[in-house]
Every structure is written in C-alpha cells, then in structure tokens.
Design a protein around this nucleic acid. Structure first.
Length: 1030
RNA sequence: GCGGGCGUGGCGGAAUUGGUAGACGCGCGGGAUUUAGGUUCCCGUGGCCCUCGUGCCGUGCAGGUUCAAGUCCUGUCGCCCGCACCA
C-alpha cells in the first residue's frame, strides 16, 4: 500500500545524494593516488614523483585541534577551509605546498575520563582522534596525511623531551643577547682567571650553573587543594574553595620547573615588529610582556635597628620625577621586610595587627583580589626617608602591591597615582602635589609672582591674566621668557585704564581654562586668585590624582631642581641625580614572568630528568629517550598535604639506576628517581610546526634540509587559528623557536611569519527585554516578530553556540543535507574570515543552488551527459576573464566571500549562454579550491584522469587577458554638484576632453544647466564627471 | 580604567587608492513548472510620495574638509573582544 509518489526531480540533478556520492568517490581516489602528498628535499614518493627543488615552497599551517569527545564543531572547518583554499591555490600556481594536520592530544579531559573509568587515557584519546580524522576527511581537505602525528606519539614526544633538554642545557648570554650551550658558560668561567668559579666548591659551582639554565627548578606559589590532591588554576578557585566539590584551597609555595622566558622579553617584543600578524594580537603580546621604563630608588629605613634586613628599601617606579611627592611607602605582604618585622619581637610595635593582615592576605586568591579592589593595609611600624625631601615617611603593607612585580615595594605618590590616592585617603596619609598640568602651568607660575597683586580692580587683573595666557598659549612662549611676557601685559594695563577686549585670548584651551578656573571658581580678588593658583590643592579639586604629564613644581632640594621641567625632562634629570648620588638608577621592568612548566598530572610528557640521592637533578641520556609514560591502573590523584603527582604511584618506573637513565656523571649503579611532574598541554604545540616538515626523521627533531626548505629563513608562510591563542600558545611557541634558533637547530628566528585569526562562528539567539536568553526551541514566530513560550516578546541577537541555548550546529548534519562542498562554500561566504558571524542554516541553500546551477550548466540533468556549447559567447568569455582576475587576488588576501560572489555572478550568466569545453575547463579550475569534489568531478568529465596524476588539484591556475577586462564602451555617470544626474556612454579609451564633451552634450545635462554658469568640470577618466555650476 | 576593533536594507554582508552606496546570498512579493509542497526556474525587492519623477531622503548621531565622504578630520552615542591594583 506504500504508493510511491512519482518524483519529478531529474535523475541527474546535483542534490545531497549525488554530492555525497561524488565526494566519497574522489576522497577515495585522492587517498589512493596520494594526490596531496608532497615530497621532502631529496625524497621520491611511492608514486614515483620526485622532489622538485626548482619550485618555491609554501608552508600553510592550521592550529591543530584538541580532539574532544564531542567531535568537530562548525568553528573547526572555518579556518581549515581557508587554509585549504589557499593551499590548493598555491599548488595550482606552481608551489610545493606543505599543508599538514595533526592532533594536540595530551590534556585534562582524557585524564579525567581515565580517573572516572580506569581506562588508560591513550585508548580514549585514540578514539577521539579517529573520530576527528574521519570528520575532517569528509570535508575533502587536501592535507598530506602521511605527515600526521599526535603529540602523544612516543616518536613525537621523545623530541619534545629532547628540546626540553636543549633548553635545560642552555643559558642566556645577556651580552650576546642569545642562548648558548651551558658548556660554554663553564668554559668561559674556567678560562677567566678572575672568575669566582675558581674559588667555588663543587656545590657552589653546581648552583652557579643551575642558576643560569633556561629551564630551572624554582619556587612558585600555587593553589593547592589537599583533598583533590591537585594544583588548581586561579579560575578554579572560588572564595578559597575549589570550584568543584567546594574543598579548601591553600596557597602554597611549591618547587617546580620554570623556563627563563623573561630573558627573551626584549626579543619577543622586538620580533613582533617584523611579523605580519593582526595588530590586536601583537598588542596583546606587548601588553603581556609589559615592558616599562623607569628607575629603581633606594629609601633608607628607620626604626629597623636590630632587624636582619637591608638598611634601605628598594622600589621600582615609572615616575621617578614624582619622588618629591612620595609621602609614604607600601610593601607587599610577602615582602621580606614584613617577614622580618614579624619575626623580631619588638615592644611598642602592633605586630598582632600586622600578622593578622599578612595571614589574611596570604590566603586571598588572585581572583578575590580582582573582585574587590577596596584598599586594605596596615602600618608596618617601620619608616623610611624620602631621599629627595629628607622627610620621614611611613612604610605600610598592602596587597595592592604585588610581590611578583618590581621589588614588591613602591614609593607612594598619592597626588599622581589613582591607587595611591585612594589608599592615602582611606588611611589619612599626606598628599603632596609635585606635577602641575602643562596647560595650567603658566597660571601657576603667575600665581607665584606677586606683581599681580599691584594690579587694580578685578576686571583689570582678569584681563591681564587672560592676555598673559593668550600670549603663552598662542605664541609658544618659553618658560624663561615668562617674566618678560608678564611685564609686557602688565605695562599695557595700568591701573585705572579701561579694560578693552582681551587681545590674544579667547581661543581654545585658554578660554576653557579661564571659564573653569576663574569665572566658575567665583574668585573675587587678585589675592584669592593668587592663593588658589599657588595651591596645588586646586588641581586635585578638578579631578582625582593627576597622572598625566605636566610641569614639575615643589620639586627641588640642594642637589637637584626639577621645577618647571616637563615630565620627560624631569624624569631624565631625576635619574641623572639618582645615579650621581648612588641613590638609584635607570631600570626597565617587565610584567612577563618565568613560565611555570610543571603539572601534577599523568597525561602529559614526562620530564627527561632524574634526581640523585642528594636531590640534585640530572638530564637523562639522550639515547634513553623517550621517557615513556608507565602503564597504570589508578590515575586518581592522592589526597595529601603535599602535591603527589599520579606518576609517584608508579614506583617501578620512578626508581632506576643512573646507568639505566644514561646519567654519566653518576656511578652506573647509583639509585636515582624520576621527576614525577609532567609537562603542561602547551609543550607539544610549541614545536609541532617543525615536525610536520620531517615527521619520520629518527635522528633529529627536524633535519637541516627539511628545515632549510620548508621553514627557511621566515618559517611558516601562513598560520591560521583562533584568537584565543593570541598570547599563551603563540608566545610559548615563539620562545621555544627562538631557543632552537639560538642553538642552531633552525634557521628562522620566528616560527610564524604571517598569522591570521578566523572569527568566531556564533549563532542566532533570542533575548527577552531583561536580556535573558531563551533557548531557540522555545521561540515562536508571531506577527512578524518573535515570542517565547509565555508569549513574551523576544528579540533576535547573536550568542556563542551553547548546549543550553540549543543553538549548536553539527557539521555532519549539514554535510548530510547539502554535501561538504556546500558547507565549505557557505562558511567561506558568510563574511570576512576574521569577523565573528552568526550561523544561519537557511543561508546555506544559496550556495547549494550555486553548485546546482554550475552543475546544470555543464551536465544535462535528464541524461547526465556533458552539455557544452560549440562556440564561446563573447560576453561570457569576457566575464570569465574578469572572474579569474578577481578570484586569484581575493584568495591571496583571504577575501573568500567576494571571490565566491564573483563566481556566483559568473555562473548566473554562464547558465544562460552555456560554456565551451575550454571555458568549462578554466571555470572548474577556479572553482576547485573552494569546492574540490565538484571541481574534480567536472574535471574528470571534461576528459582528465585524476586517478593517474591528472587531478585538478595539480592543474595550473588559469590565466586571464588584461585586454579582456576592459569594455569597448564605458557608461560614465555625470554628476552636477556631486549629485547623479545622467549617464553617458563613451568609448572606454576616450580622453578627458571627449568625456567632458559627451557629458555636456547630454540633453538632460543641458536642461539642468540652463541658466547656470559652469564653474568647473572634474573628469575622472573611466569613473565619472562632476560639473560644478550655479 | 587601559589596549584592539566595529556601527551600511528585514538578515548575512559588498564598495582594495575619497569617485554610480547596497555587489552576492538569504528572506520577502509576483509569475512559471508540477504526476502537491520542502532542495526547481524566471522577474522584482533601501525608504518616502494620492506629485512615480534618472523626484526627494539615505551608511549610529552632530559638525568639518572637499568639485565629490560609508571612506578623511573633530566631537559624541552604542556594541564586541582582550587585559586589568604591574607602581
């Protein structure tokens, strides 16, 4: 009874079923034929193809995915399609293209799965990788899969460990500005007869060397949760408890591996200038590195007799010019001075309060500090002497000063720093202004000059002040000439004389100052004015702390005089004075900290490090790499007061002999224990761009030939991935790459020459008036608008895709409905690659229709036979040249949406005229990078055999003829006074005169010009004519 | 607060150097085809007007420069992203 309804769809229409058939068929052919394999220098591929050294190279890299259990997201193929299009385009343009893919596979989700199930994380991870690979392959990306690897492969992470050892065995030579092997440090010390090395004990020598290593063991305060047995990130700690489970979290100092990335701060900063990266990303990296210039200053301490502390307190400041305004000091609660004050029992010191504060601050997480920025703090009982004023100032402690930056101590200048002012006001500390706003400075200067008092009535001095200000502001009078300028305006305004119009005033800033400071302040007498101008308190009334550059005031002592200097000069003079007197010196500081590289986890790369019986660390012998992860059954962290990484439980793995570990410095039978921390998730992604170029090299991480060719001097040619990696991954990878460069392992000083971030793909979402979001399945369309389930109106907006909003799009589903080619085209057509844009499944149909139309133009839907025109339509031929001329450059600048729009236009036109074999052949080639399956299908139907090397993937990019881009005639718009009034058609090679004549001859133009005088005619050849007439 | 960026039809967006604003797609309207429709084809589609004219208005808002401004300048409003007590 299942009466099948007849279907009127032609049998050979390009629909989902046909697209699916085409796509799987060509994917198989490409895999079998090795279409996308590329040879390394000197290599011959199984196909017999040899490396062609005459071709230029193009290395096109995606940020490899972390294969999560939930599979591919629509965001993944966005960047991957972009690189795929560029790769295919470059290959067709004669480049050897390296376009690889792999998997970033160590990480917490797999470890959590192992803890929950007892299953080894490797098994779970391999499954997710297989799923990801299968999903990726459905898109027809032209990756060279023979180069695929995952960071968890032993053949890969042995080299990750090897690179760690290179870093461990290197030091940073600040004179040379680069890393060098640690052996050269020892050599240099030994060959220098004056070096302290010669007087050192073996232990001291060891410490000297270890203190220079680029990878070193150091102490860092971490969030330790004893109950969970793990270290937590700041984001995972809320109100001193773990986000999961609500267990107490302590801040605990812990010995961990650190990388001396700070040594590279300047190079990481200056290297950015040479890179073709998004400005925002460069800005983020600069901000993260946080270079600032200023001075360190020593403040002599008072009230520390009997304490084992330095006699002076060193601070860092970017505003040394404000030292005269330093009225108190603040040290971080973790500062050694505080520790020492607490240790020494001293009468008359309210130590209890200090101790309570320090303990409270110690257990306050960074997150809490961020939430509440209310200033807290206590007086330490110690004072210091301001070296500029000689005045005694109190030393406070507060957690708004961070131990990790500068010296963990500041001089507080409340008049010129918002935070210091807030603190000073809360605790009643003195505020002293030492910088005056530059535009107001002449008024302040005036205020200090008593001549004004001799002036008569208020109108008179007002005009005098205004004239003086005008003179200074408009004529740029130098400070040295202020007395003369004052004299000039005073002598022009004798008492009793009628005040006329102010001669030089009334403009710009001067007028503003006048109304704000005199009229609005309602100052009655010259005396009152002078008092106000002299009093820096006036400026504070205008705003808060004055933090901008200005002119120094109140800043002189017997040794140095800053008064009147602008901030820049005042800084320089202060530093000169500090250096002359030995009170301080110029200093550059960075926010960048050394990189904490240890994790108390199982599922990461083990360190190639063992400890001897004395707790000294040793590198394992390189020939013993990889240090493979041991098999375990229990991955759960132990509940304890001290961090015990899961690997600690693998006692058979942890304990071995020096001989087994390849440590030559110890007797072969000496017992050693392995480092049980593992490397963080970033490790594997720091150098994967190198391994793709030489995956199977068993001798090197990357061989010199592969490096010289694929990376060369400039590294990766195009790197596309998400902006969320703007700082960490991209900074860490640059650091590793720079070390490898310094040690001679790669030729490129930077890994990624050109970087691009694809925008986030969002989804439409619906929002109530109160901004709450409604899941899409609860939204009903009504009366041309939208309402939620209760009938409350909601408005369309965009939001990140999320399970709770039920607006997540599954790529597999879209491919099932339309095919991978449509999916690829849709994502590239949504808008600019870098823009964040909302997914709208309804829009995909447009791209599907485009492919359908392209298909129908060349293939008969009823018979499936090729359908070609015998002769080329002239207009279509011309349009084809234009389309080719548009698509190429658009691909180069990653403007895929406009390239696709051009191809749609072409197909819309070509559908009407048909295409010849030759035209179809060229069109298929420009389509292929975007829709490779349909491209290959058309290509094969046009007589090529992709299975035997004649794939469209390696076909040459078609040429276009410049002569075909211009029409014989051009339609030129004619404007009158900038408004479009007519169009005239002229030969496209018409000169200005001819175009003008044609425009003037147009009947409509003549009519509109009747009774008007033509003042000017602007002719932009080929563009427009604009007639100025009135 | 600091840094980066963005405001163009009902929606996504185009306009590479100041030179015809709205390419292209969706949606919508009309028509065709049809053994009913979804994923076919063709035409139309920024707003306004009892004036239908190659008429007026129009790129967040207000000014300015220019023969000419989405584009440049000044101010202002709104939104997004990143960082955030870094002295």
């Amino acid at each position: 009874m299942n009466a099948r309804r007849p279907d009127n769809t032609p049998p050979h229409r390009y629909n989902a079923a046909l697209a699916g058939e085409i796509e799987t068929r060509w994917q198989r052919v490409w895999a079998d034929a090795g279409t996308y394999r590329v040879a390394n220098p000197g290599e011959t591929l199984p196909t017999g193809e040899t490396f062609d050294a005459t071709k230029p190279k193009f290395y096109c890299l995606d940020m490899f995915p972390y294969p999560s259990g939930s599979g591919l997201h629509v965001g993944h193929p966005e960047g991957y399609t972009a690189t795929d299009i560029v790769s295919r385009y470059k290959r067709m343009n004669g480049f050897n293209v390296l376009h690889p893919m792999g998997f970033d596979a160590f990480g917490l989700p797999a470890e959590q799965h192992a803890i929950n199930t007892g299953e080894h994380p490797a098994g779970f991870t391999r499954q997710t990788i297989d799923t990801f690979r299968r999903q990726l392959q459905r898109f027809g990306f032209g990756y060279d899969w023979s180069r695929e690897f995952a960071t968890i492969d032993e053949d890969y992470y042995r080299w990750t460990q090897w690179i760690f050892l290179q870093i461990y065995n290197a030091w940073f030579d600040h004179d040379a500005g680069r890393a060098r092997p640690i052996a050269e440090l020892i050599e240099a010390a030994e060959s220098d007869p004056d070096h302290a090395w010669h007087a050192m004990s073996p232990g001291e020598r060891r410490r000297f060397v270890d203190d220079h290593r680029l990878a070193y063991l150091g102490e860092q305060t971490v969030n330790w949760c004893p109950r969970l047995g793990t270290v937590l990130a700041n984001e995972e700690v809320i109100d001193g408890r773990s986000e999961r489970g609500g267990h107490p979290v302590l801040r605990k100092p812990l010995k961990q591996w650190l990388f001396r990335i700070t040594a590279y701060a300047d190079r990481l900063l200056s290297g950015l200038d040479e890179l073709d990266w998004p400005e925002s990303t460069k800005a983020q990296q600069r901000e993260w590195i946080g270079r600032s210039q200023g001075a360190e200053i020593d403040f002599e301490l008072r009230g520390v007799d009997g304490l084992a502390v330095d006699p002076s307190l060193r601070v860092y400041t970017t505003r040394p010019d404000t030292v005269f305004g330093a009225t108190y000091m603040v040290v971080a609660p973790e500062h050694p001075l505080v520790e020492e004050v607490l240790r020494s029992p001293r009468d008359a010191t309210p130590n209890d309060k200090l101790r309570a504060y320090v303990e409270w601050a110690a257990n306050r997480s960074d997150l809490e500090r961020q939430e509440s920025k209310d200033k807290t703090g206590v007086y330490t009982g110690v004072d210091a002497v301001n070296p500029a004023t000689g005045e005694r100032v109190p030393v406070w402690t507060s957690d708004y000063v961070l131990m990790g930056y500068g010296f963990g101590a500041i001089m507080a200048v409340p008049a010129h720093d918002d935070r210091d002012l807030e603190f000073a006001e809360k605790f009643g500390l003195e505020v002293r202004q030492v910088v005056y706003p530059a535009p107001l400075y002449p008024m302040w200067w005036l205020g200090t000059h008593a001549e004004l008092k001799t002036l008569g009535d208020s109108a008179h001095w007002r005009n005098t002040v205004e004239d003086f200000m005008g003179l200074v502001a408009t004529n740029g009078v130098a400070e040295a000439d202020y007395p003369r300028a004052l004299e000039q305006v005073v002598t022009n305004r004798r008492p009793g004389e009628q005040p006329g119009e102010p001669s030089l005033s009334g403009r710009g800033a001067v007028r503003m100052i006048w109304t704000e400071t005199i009229d609005e302040m309602k100052i009655g007498s010259p005396e009152e004015f002078l008092d106000r101008m002299r009093s820096p308190e006036r400026v504070r009334r205008l705003g808060e702390a004055f933090t901008e550059p200005g002119r120094a005031i109140n800043s002189s002592n017997a040794d140095v005089d800053l008064n009147g200097l602008n901030t820049q000069d005042a800084k320089a003079r202060t530093i000169d004075w500090l250096e002359r007197t030995g009170l301080g010196r110029r200093r550059t500081n960075y926010k960048l900290r050394d990189w904490l590289f240890s994790r108390q986890r199982y599922w990461g790369e083990p360190f190639p490090i063992v400890f001897d019986e004395h707790g000294q660390h040793h590198a394992v012998g390189e020939h013993t790499l990889p240090v493979a992860l041991p098999e375990m059954t229990d991955y759960a962290p132990a509940e304890s007061d001290d961090p015990q990484p899961p690997l600690g439980k693998a006692t058979g793995w942890v304990r071995l002999t020096a001989g087994e570990a390849g440590v030559d410095a110890l007797p072969a039978d000496a017992p050693v224990t392995r480092e049980t921390n593992t490397m963080p998730g970033w490790a594997g992604s720091c150098w994967y761009h190198l391994r793709y170029a030489d995956r199977d090299n068993a001798e090197n991480a990357i061989g010199p030939d592969a490096d010289a060719y694929w990376l060369g001097e400039n590294g990766v040619d195009l790197y596309i991935g998400g902006a969320e990696h703007a700082v960490l991954h991209l900074l860490y990878a640059r650091f590793w790459h720079m070390v490898l460069y310094d040690l001679g392992h790669v030729r490129s000083s930077e890994p990624y020459r050109k970087l691009f971030h694809q925008g986030l793909i969002t989804s439409f979402a619906y929002q109530r008036k109160d901004k709450s979001l409604v899941p899409v399945d609860q939204v009903i369309e009504r009366d041309g608008g939208f309402v939620d389930a209760d009938g409350e109106p909601v408005f369309q907006t965009t939001a990140k895709m999320s399970k709770s909003l039920k607006n997540v799009v599954n790529p597999d589903e879209i491919i099932d409905r339309f095919g991978a080619d449509t999916f690829r085209l849709y994502e590239m057509y949504m808008g600019p690659l870098e823009a964040s844009k909302p997914w709208n499944t309804d829009d995909t149909i447009g791209l599907f229709r485009f492919l359908q139309r392209a298909w129908r133009t060349l293939v008969r839907e009823d018979t499936g036979e090729l359908s070609l025109a015998d002769t080329a339509d002239a207009g279509t031929e011309k349009l084809l040249h234009r389309t080719i001329a548009k698509v190429g450059p658009d691909v180069e600048r990653l403007s895929f949406n406009t390239a696709i729009a051009a191809m749609i236009e072409f197909v819309n036109a070509a559908g009407k005229t048909g295409l010849t074999h030759d035209q179809a052949d060229r069109f298929a080639r420009i389509l292929a990078p975007f829709a490779p399956h349909l491209g290959e299908e058309l290509w094969s139907r046009l007589g090529h055999d992709p299975a035997s090397g004649d794939s469209i993937a390696v076909a040459p990019w078609p040429n276009f003829d410049d002569a075909m881009l211009v029409d014989d005639e051009a339609e030129i718009p004619v404007q009158i006074l900038g408004k479009l009034r007519a169009r005239v058609t002229v030969p496209s090679d018409a000169d200005q005169k001819a175009i003008e004549a044609a425009a003037m001859a147009d009947p409509r133009v003549q009519e509109l010009l009747k009774g008007k005088t033509v003042r000017k005619v602007i002719v932009v050849p080929g563009r427009l004519v604009n007639i100025v007439a009135n």
